[in-house]
Amino acid sequence: MHRSPLAQLVIDCRQPELDAAAGFWSGALGQPWRRLPDPDDGHCRQLDTAPGQPGILLQAVRHPSRVHLDIESTDVEAEVRRLEALGARRVAQVRDWWVMQAPTGHRFCVLRQQRDDLPREGHRWP
């Protein structure tokens, strides 16, 4: 048994100045932004959302700008297998998460647990 809800919306930004993009989305959505503390995440900015709401992450990318979803899970491998059974396919593993592709062609990611309330609040899968 594992649990998995929507973790965050990711705004992929193909532009040279990520702080400017964060400033725009911060103003548009009324959420302050911040840099992430991990140096490996220097290409990301986080908008601060209300507790219990999915996060909003901006990341600098080389592909065209788009928005994608992240699903968090208490068991990444079990969630990836469940999604594969629904027709998704693995595209690439990045650190400890998977980039997936839905049968509709949309890319999304499956991440390890991000929120403390996940064991109580995430959808429970057999």
Rank of each mutant, 00 (worst) to 15 (best):
M1T: 13
H2S: 12
R3Y: 13
P5R: 03
P5S: 00
P5Q: 00
L6C: 07
A7Y: 01
L9C: 14
L9W: 11
I11K: 09
D12C: 05
D12A: 12
C13L: 10
R14V: 08
Q15G: 14
P16S: 09
L18A: 06
D19L: 10
D19H: 03
D19G: 01
D19N: 10
A20Y: 09
A20S: 13
A21M: 04
A21S: 06
A22C: 01
A22E: 02
A22D: 01
W25E: 03
W25G: 05
W25M: 07
S26C: 03
S26R: 08
A28S: 02
A28I: 00
A28G: 01
A28N: 02
L29Y: 01
G30D: 05
Q31E: 00
Q31A: 08
P32C: 00
W33Q: 02
W33Y: 14
W33F: 13
R34Q: 14
R34E: 12
R35K: 12
R35S: 14
P37F: 00
D38L: 06
D40H: 06
H43M: 04
H43E: 10
R45Y: 04
L47N: 11
D48S: 13
T49H: 02
T49F: 02
P51Y: 03
G52W: 00
G52H: 01
P54E: 04
I56N: 01
I56W: 02
Q59T: 14
A60H: 15
V61H: 07
R62Y: 01
H63G: 04
P64R: 15
P64A: 15
S65G: 13
V67Q: 11
V67L: 12
H68G: 11
L69K: 06
L69V: 14
L69T: 09
D70R: 10
D70I: 13
D70C: 09
I71A: 07
E72K: 05
E72F: 10
S73P: 07
D75V: 09
V76W: 04
E77P: 00
A78T: 06
A78D: 11
V80G: 12
V80A: 06
R82C: 08
L83A: 11
L83P: 00
E84K: 12
A85M: 09
L86D: 09
G87I: 13
R90W: 03
V94D: 02
R95Y: 10
W97N: 11
W97L: 10
W98R: 04
W98G: 03
W98K: 01
V99P: 00
Q101C: 15
Q101T: 13
A102D: 15
A102N: 09
P103R: 15
P103G: 15
T104Q: 08
H106V: 08
R107M: 05
R107F: 07
R107N: 02
R107I: 11
R107D: 10
F108S: 09
C109K: 08
C109W: 07
V110W: 06
V110D: 11
L111G: 07
Q114K: 08
R115C: 08
D116C: 01
D116H: 10
D117T: 11
L118E: 07
P119G: 15
R120V: 13
E121Q: 13
G122C: 03
H123G: 02
H123K: 05
R124M: 11
W125H: 15
P126L: 02
P126R: 01
P126N: 06
